[in-house]
Structures are given as structure tokens and as C-alpha cells.
């Protein structure tokens, strides 16, 4: 398994813990991630401004992977949605590809051949590595940990571009990926709720009101951490957690982890090497469990 690693704008600056843990887990699983400094923004922010601009920006990134002779491996679900949609429409619709290529060639001198596919890390772990192979890699069971899975909207939607992968109305892949580590994936009512990240730039008040219901429900359920796989969701649930919850409970603290950090722990890596010091929201409960996990290692 060999992929072009697409980091996007946010992960390499704000979520180095996600990047670090994803790289370590991939390496251990024999997934080769190849870097390129030619990638740029996926195009997502421009979709509402000019649909064609966004498609051209996505196509430019597909061309970078094409020149590497590799499919794309993503960490951010917003990038995943945008690049997947672009690859599906451009790979399938030859007339549109021609039209887009005329403009892409004018801007960059390059054309897209319609061959590149896009895979989010969780999908690679679930589909290409597979739960059985992951189970074989578990060195330290996370039995006793309770996590709430948050599926970023663009991990699975619009479903028309994700080839029937998982079920957007009753998603289960991230829950299964959590359970393979020995931890419990807690079921909860607000699981499908959007983080609100898409509205943050336009209306902060509306955006910051959106993560509250999920954080409250999960805290009441007594979980150790919310587990996600998207930097935008992290901005809402972790980075802005204090602002989101200040009118409800100024001392509110619910840790947020990236899935690759959880998997890395179960594969026997230390919290330190998985970048846990960069997770902003700490809790005594989680710290105690992590220390116990480390102490129990042979």
C-alpha cells in the first residue's frame, strides 16, 4: 500500500498530533505515505464562491498525485469530500474533464487524466488494511476506555460519491475501528450532528452554538474522549470547546482525540510519541487511564 499523503491546510499547522500519529500508525501497518510539497488547498472554501474555481483547485491536486503515480491519502474530511467529489465527476464525465482540462492547462500547463482516487485514513484502515489485520497489530487492549465516535460529515457524504462505503444515516466504520482496540464505542443520540465548522467563517455565533448538544450528551454519558478524524471537527469540539460551553459550564472539559492516536496506543505506542501533549483539552480521568496503560506495559 502506497499513497500520496495529502495534508491539506489545517492539519500540518494546527493538528500535528493527528499527522504524527497517522504517520506512525501507517508506517507500522506497512502503508507507505509519500510526501509532496506541490499540494495546495483542496478547493473546499471556494465552492460557495465559484464552483469552477473549487473544481480546478481540486483537479490541480489530483494532477500532483497523478504525476507521483499514486492515489491520494487524506486526513481531513472536508478535503476528502472535495477531492473525492472532484475525482468522481472528472473520472466519470469525459466531456466535463475535457472542459476543465482546457482551463487547468491554461492555468498550470497540466491536464488531469482521470485516474486518481481519494481515500480517507479511516477508510484505508477499514477497507484496505481491514479489521482482522488491525486486530493482529493490537498489543495493548484499551479495554475500559469509553469513546464516542464522531464521523465528520464529509467522510461519508454526499454518499453518491463514496461508492456505498458505510451508511451515512447509521455509520459504523469508525465505531468498529474503535472497538478493534478493545475500547467501548459508546452509542449516543447526537452522533450524526454536524460540528458547525462550515459556518464558522460566516457566523461565529451560529457555528459555536452547534457543537454544544453533542459535547453535553457525551459528557453526561461519562466517556473518556470524543474520537474524530477531521481537523475541522477538532476546531469546533476541542479548540473552541471553552467558548462553546462557557454559558453552560465554564469548567467543562471533554478530551478530544484523533482516531490514529487511539489506534497507536493500542498498537503499543506511547501517548508521548503520538502527540498527546498537543491535545488541548485534558482531563484527570483520561490522564489516569493513560498512565495506568503505560504502567501495565511489560
Amino acid at each position: 500500500m502506497r499513497y500520496a499523503l495529502y495534508l491539506g491546510c489545517t492539519v500540518p499547522i494546527r493538528n500535528m498530533n493527528y499527522e504524527l500519529s497517522a504517520r506512525k500508525v501507517a508506517e507500522r501497518l506497512g502503508i507507505e505515505l509519500v510526501d509532496s510539497d506541490q499540494f495546495g488547498c483542496c478547493g473546499y472554501p471556494m465552492k460557495g464562491v465559484n464552483h469552477r474555481t473549487a473544481l480546478l483547485m481540486a483537479a490541480r491536486n489530483l494532477v500532483v498525485a497523478q504525476e507521483m503515480g499514486l492515489d491520494i491519502f487524506t486526513l481531513c474530511t472536508a478535503c476528502t469530500g472535495t477531492l473525492t467529489e472532484a475525482s468522481v465527476v472528472l473520472n466519470e464525465d469525459e466531456a466535463l474533464r475535457q472542459e476543465v482540462n482546457e482551463e487547468l492547462e491554461k492555468a498550470t500547463g497540466k491536464r488531469y487524466n482521470g485516474q486518481v482516487k481519494v481515500h480517507h485514513i479511516a477508510r484505508v484502515l477499514y477497507e484496505d488494511v481491514g479489521l482482522a489485520a488491525l486486530r493482529d497489530q493490537i498489543k495493548v487492549s484499551l479495554n475500559g476506555f469509553r469513546f464516542g465516535a464522531h464521523y465528520g460529515c464529509h467522510y461519508l457524504k454526499p454518499s453518491e460519491v463514496f461508492e456505498g462505503f458505510d451508511d451515512p444515516e447509521a455509520p459504523h466504520t469508525l465505531d468498529e475501528l474503535i472497538e478493534v482496540t478493545g475500547a467501548e464505542a459508546v452509542q449516543y443520540n447526537t452522533k450524526l450532528l454536524c460540528c458547525g465548522g462550515g459556518v464558522l467563517a460566516v457566523d461565529e455565533e451560529v457555528a459555536l452554538a452547534m457543537p454544544q448538544a453533542k459535547l453535553q450528551e457525551l459528557a453526561q454519558a461519562g466517556i473518556d474522549a470524543l474520537v474524530l478524524a477531521c481537523p475541522f471537527c477538532d476546531i469546533m469540539y476541542e479548540y473552541n470547546q471553552r467558548r462553546v460551553m462557557r454559558n453552560v459550564d465554564p469548567r467543562f472539559q471533554l478530551p478530544v482525540l484523533f482516531y490514529s492516536q487511539v489506534l497507536g496506543l493500542a498498537m503499543g505506542m506511547s501517548a508521548e510519541e503520538l502527540g498527546f501533549s498537543l491535545n488541548r483539552v485534558k482531563s484527570k480521568g483520561l490522564a489516569t487511564k493513560l498512565a495506568a496503560l503505560e504502567a501495565a506495559k511489560p
Partner: peptide, 30 residues
């Protein structure tokens, strides 16, 4: 500063590639 922090964590440096994106913004009228 970002690349210094990345280096401390053993992550490769990243670089901005604005030229082609700027051309795309131009060609598509944005």
C-alpha cells in the same frame, strides 16, 4: 515558526505553492 515546530516533532517541512492556485483564481475569474 511552524516549520521549526514540525522539525522538533520530526515532521518534514512544508512549503507554500501559491503560483498555480493564483493562476486558477485568475482563469476562473475569482
Amino acid at each position: 515558526y511552524d516549520n521549526e515546530r514540525r522539525a522538533e516533532l520530526g515532521l518534514p517541512a512544508i512549503h507554500e505553492q501559491p503560483a498555480e492556485v493564483a493562476e486558477i483564481l485568475k482563469v476562473s475569474g475569482t
